[in-house]
């Protein structure tokens, strides 16, 4: 964690840690884990809103809590770039981290695997392995997705791989 910036560090210390080590097939223990996940996400979302740093929406799209969908966005040069966000909870969770997917960017960057799965192998998965089972979805978003967006979106915009919807509309009209 030494290399992370002070803002991320202070944010991380205020996201509640999880204690239940349970995966999707563990019945009541998984329900308990889901409760902790929700508390963690609620706390993180509230923190972001109070700091005027809101940047994602996420919710479970099935009752079992194994499929999550939402949106995330990044502001670059005063323009907001928004993307669909989705991921499955892997069978071996929380021993393994969820694979966060941005399907709209699939194929546009080499920092991505098939289906829009962002590469977290270097900057996040070692952290996850060290902090299992204390890290959860909120931590994956804070330490995995947020830095990835901050690093990659400016490059993709500058290279023209991603266009803002207004720019896209303009080019469509012309």
């Amino acid at each position: 964690m030494e290399g992370w910036d002070p803002n991320t560090k202070s944010t991380l210390t205020r996201i509640p840690l999880l204690t239940t080590k349970a995966g999707p097939r563990d019945g009541a223990a998984w329900t308990q884990r889901l409760k902790e996940e929700y508390k963690s996400l609620i706390a993180y979302t509230q923190m972001n809103k109070s700091n005027d740093n809101d940047w994602f929406r996420i919710s479970a799209s099935n009752p079992e809590g194994t499929r999550w969908t939402g949106k995330c966005w990044y502001v670059h040069n005063l323009l907001k770039y928004e993307f669909d966000l989705q991921f499955d909870i892997p069978i071996t969770y929380p021993a393994t981290a969820p694979e966060l997917e941005l399907p709209e960017i699939d194929g546009k960057t080499q920092k991505m695997y098939r289906g829009g799965k962002i590469c977290l192998t270097v900057h996040f998965k070692p952290l996850w392995a060290k902090n299992c089972p204390r890290f959860g979805i909120a931590h994956a978003l804070c330490l995995g997705l947020a830095p990835w967006l901050a690093a990659e979106i400016p490059i993709l915009v500058d290279s023209g791989a991603i266009k803002h919807k207004d720019d896209a509309a303009t080019s469509a009209e012309s």
């Binding site: 204690t19 239940t20 409760k35 929700y38 996400l41 609620i42 996420i58 939402g70």
Partner: peptide, 29 residues
């Protein structure tokens, strides 16, 4: 883990559906 799970017992009373609704409300805001 034992220490943490001790404090976890208090959380048993929380309802999963309530937490889900709270998050949805935050998403809508």
């Amino acid at each position: 883990i034992a220490i943490a799970s001790g404090s976890g017992e208090t959380e048993e009373e929380d309802d999963l559906e309530d937490l889900k609704k709270q998050l949805e409300a935050l998403n809508a805001a």
